[in-house]
Computed example of a mutant assay.
Amino acid sequence: MTAPLRHRAREAWLGGAVLAAVTVAAALFDPTRPGRFPSCPFRAVTGWDCPGCGSLRALHALTHGDVVAAVDYNALLVGFLPFGAVIWLRAVTGRFRPRVLPVWAARALAATVVLWAVIRNLPLFGGVLAS
C-alpha cells in the first residue's frame, strides 16, 4: 500500500473504532431510559425528534436484534449501514478510491437527509417514524 492509502486505511480503522465504542455504549445503556445519555439540545430547542437520538436508539435496537424497532427509530440509518460497511471495508483494504460527488448527487443526499428529518416529525405519521 502506498503512503496515502495507508493513511486512509488508518483513518478508516480510527473511524471504525469510534463507531465500535458508540455501538458498545448504545448496547450497554438503553438510550430510551432517562438519565443514561445527556438531554438532546435539538429537541429542547425545536421540540422535534432528533435524527441523532433516533440513530442512537436504532443502534441500541440493532445490537439487541430488534430490526423492526431500529427501522421505526431511524430507517435511514438502518438502510445506510450496509453501504457504510462496504465503504469501510474497501477503505481498510485500500480498495476505496474517494471520488468527488457530482453537485447534483451531493444536493440530493443533503435534501434526502433534511426531508427525512422533517417527514419523520410530521403528525401525519402519528409518531410511527419518530424516535
Rank of each mutant, 00 (worst) to 15 (best):
V68I: 13
P102L: 10
P31A: 00
A91L: 07
V118P: 15
I119V: 15
L101N: 07
V67D: 01
V67G: 04
I119T: 14
L81M: 04
C53F: 02
A26R: 00
H64E: 10
A106T: 11
H60M: 02
F37Q: 01
A105E: 09
R107T: 06
F83V: 11
C50G: 12
D30M: 00
F96G: 12
R36H: 15
A27Y: 10
R90C: 12
R95W: 12
P123H: 13
G84L: 04
F80N: 06
A58R: 02
D30S: 01
L115T: 15
T23K: 00
R99M: 12
I119M: 12
V86Q: 06
L101Y: 09
L122Q: 15
R120M: 13
A25P: 00
S55D: 04
D66V: 01
V71N: 02
L101M: 10
P82F: 01
A69C: 05
F29A: 14
W48G: 15
A21P: 00
A27F: 09
G35V: 08
S39H: 15
L101H: 09
T46R: 15
L19D: 03
G79I: 12
R90Y: 09
D30E: 02
V103W: 10
P31T: 00
A85M: 08
A117R: 11
R43K: 15
V100C: 05
F42P: 12
L76W: 05
T32D: 11
A27S: 12
P98R: 10
I119D: 07
A44R: 14
H64Q: 11
A26C: 01
V24M: 04
A75D: 03
A26D: 00
R107A: 05
S55L: 06
A21T: 07
V100T: 09
A106V: 09
P98F: 08
A17R: 07
Y73S: 09
A61H: 02
F125D: 13
L62F: 04
L109M: 11
V103C: 09
V68G: 10
V92P: 02
P82H: 02
R90T: 09
V86N: 06
V24F: 03
A17C: 07
V92N: 03
A85Y: 06
I87G: 09
L89F: 14
A27Q: 09
A110K: 04
A85K: 06
A26V: 00
G84H: 03
G65D: 05
R90P: 05
R95I: 13
C40I: 06
D66Q: 05
A108I: 02
A70L: 01
V86Y: 06
C53I: 05
R90K: 13
V113T: 11
G35K: 05
V68T: 14
F37V: 02
R120L: 10
T46C: 14
